[in-house]
């Protein structure tokens, strides 16, 4: 790796902007619209445009940060293992719900994107919209979609989910904290999990478990189904 001034500048800018965004998020009362990732991404887009950098250069210079997503994804096995003890009695219905939720979320997004926009890259990237970002980026890339677009769609899904789901679950009278958290984790990944922890510890732990399970289940089940979903438009 050739260390250049531009590379160090890109790394310091990325980390610095992120730390500032985190402070802003905490001071603004942790609203998901000001999530540090959202604020950092848009700020850095502005910064690299002002500096006249092309994205591929920035991407190369920040490879070190991106690389850490690999081991971090493997590390998700640790909280997953620790939280599995929670679901002993409810394991079967929760697994069925997780698989159903993951497939409905991915399938409906892919089919609707193909039908309404006819944009294939968008449809392929939409398949990863409800799963946790580290897994979503890899999955979208290996399907022929775009990891960056998937990252953006995941953030949007998280923000939309945390805005709509609490009301939806109140209307449906789903009051059990464990199930409430589970639905948030499956449909709104890390954003849902953060919101669930504000409700109660149980709610948060179930959301975290649901988030990791959904990521794993989707990575295995969704890729073989995607060509079929995308094909709906051209066949139908």
């Amino acid at each position: 790796m050739n260390v250049s001034v531009q590379m160090l500048l890109a790394l310091s800018l990325t980390i610095g902007v992120y730390l500032l965004a985190e402070q802003l998020y905490i001071r603004a009362g942790r609203t998901s619209l000001l999530h540090p990732v959202i604020v950092s991404i848009f700020t850095l887009m502005g910064v690299i445009t002002l500096l006249g950098w092309e994205y591929p250069e920035y991407q190369r210079d920040t490879q070190f940060i991106h690389f850490l997503l690999g081991p971090a994804t493997v590390a998700l096995a640790v909280p997953l293992h620790e939280n599995m003890a929670l679901i002993r009695k409810m394991a079967l219905p929760l697994m069925v719900a997780c698989v159903t939720g993951a497939l409905v979320a991915a399938g409906s997004a892919v089919v609707l994107s193909a039908l309404w926009t006819g944009d294939e890259v968008l449809a392929l990237s939409m398949s990863a919209k409800s799963i946790t970002t580290p897994i979503a980026i890899g999955m979208a890339d290996s399907l022929g979609g775009s990891g960056s677009l998937a990252a953006g769609l995941v953030l949007l899904t998280g923000a939309v989910g945390t805005l709509l789901l609490p009301t939806l679950m109140r209307w449906c009278r789903l009051h059990d904290d464990a199930l409430h958290g589970f639905v948030l984790g499956v449909t709104a990944h890390g954003f849902g999990t953060a919101q669930a922890f504000e409700r109660s510890f149980t709610c948060g732990a179930f959301a975290g478990l649901a988030m990791s399970l959904t990521g794993v289940v989707s990575a295995f089940l969704v890729p073989p189904l995607v060509p079929f979903w995308v094909g709906c438009e051209w066949v139908g």
Binding site: I41, Y55, I65, A75, A77, S146, G152
Partner: peptide, 22 residues
């Protein structure tokens, strides 16, 4: 793993900035 997961969201930022190409 707790060290990496504590700052997991920072790790998405470089890929997220790629949204500029879309």
């Amino acid at each position: 793993s707790s060290g990496l997961l504590r700052y997991l969201t920072l790790l998405f930022v470089p890929a997220g900035v790629g949204l500029i190409e879309h």
